[in-house]
């Protein structure tokens, strides 16, 4: 049985047996892959899975039609499972409200509850950073500060503030985002350099210890901003300096919101 056939079979079974009310997977439309929400076992044939399925499906758990159809079964790669664990630790989903149709590489690992999915993650290395991203980060780190500033001015200039990055991110779930606050206005909404800078920096910072490097934000960006540079940079610091990997378990303390007396102190005098 191929990977997708196995997912279809499990999805249908879960729906038939009333184990879940909805299956969240991918469908195909022309050359694009889109999320698919199905509630009937006979709809599973529309499910597809291939390398073009870039959306991180836990993002859709905040949608009203999904929330009202809990429990749901959700197709997830390891990054998706980590996102689910972040959401669970932040009380955004109940651990028993999801079943994971787990995919690791090209291999289907069956239906897992969140605890079992967490156990699966434990043995896997954190999501790899794309080689071109890692190389660019090293290159940036070696540049003089003013050149780095110039790089980011140019890199973020095309941002139109459409917030597709936010909409595609599984852990960007605030109903009222900080960028929408106006008394005071903390982040300028203008698509000008300072506003673009503030927005993208704030968004990246808010994902520290939460981003699972799923890549959905950059894939969703119509302007192809190099958002993964920011995410991967933070992920690198968090992992290397604090040995913390986002979404590592069900009851992990949050990265921001916990501390250790041995935390990095080198930059403080």
């Amino acid at each position: 049985m191929s990977l997708i056939e196995a997912i279809r079979a499990d999805g249908a079974k879960l729906l038939q047996e009333g184990e879940v009310k909805m299956v969240l997977g991918y469908r195909s439309r022309y050359d694009r892959r889109l999320p698919l929400l199905i509630t009937q076992a006979d709809q599973v044939s529309a499910l597809v899975y291939d390398d073009d399925c870039w959306q991180n499906l836990p993002t859709y758990l905040r949608k009203g039609e999904v929330r009202s159809a809990m429990p749901v079964a959700i197709v997830c790669r390891p990054e998706g499972i980590r996102s689910l664990l972040v959401l669970a630790s932040e009380a955004q989903i109940a651990a028993d409200a999801v079943r994971v149709l787990a995919i690791v590489g090209n291999e289907y690992r069956g239906v897992l509850d969140l605890a079992a999915a967490a156990a699966l993650i434990k043995d896997l290395p954190p999501a790899p950073v794309a080689p071109d991203v890692a190389a660019k980060l090293d290159e940036l780190a070696a540049m003089p500060a003013n050149d780095r500033a110039a790089f980011w001015r140019d890199a973020l200039a095309p941002c139109t503030r459409c917030y597709a990055c936010r909409a595609s991110c599984p852990v960007c779930y605030c109903q009222n985002c900080v960028v929408e606050r106006n008394t005071p206005q903390i982040v300028s909404t203008t698509a000008a350099p300072h506003g673009n800078f503030a927005w993208n920096i704030v968004r990246a910072f808010h994902q520290a210890g939460r981003c699972t490097l799923c890549g959905a934000c950059q894939a969703a960006c119509p302007q192809n901003l190099p958002l993964m540079l920011l995410n991967a940079w933070i992920e690198r610091q968090v992992r290397e300096e604090f040995a913390f990997v986002s979404g590592s378990g069900l009851n992990e303390p949050p990265f921001i919101g916990s501390w250790s007396p041995n935390d990095d102190d080198k930059f403080i005098r």
Partner: peptide, 12 residues
């Protein structure tokens, strides 16, 4: 009205 109950403050 604005709180998403992410528990960041509770943890902190």
């Amino acid at each position: 009205n604005n709180c998403d109950h992410c528990r960041a403050c509770i943890n902190t």
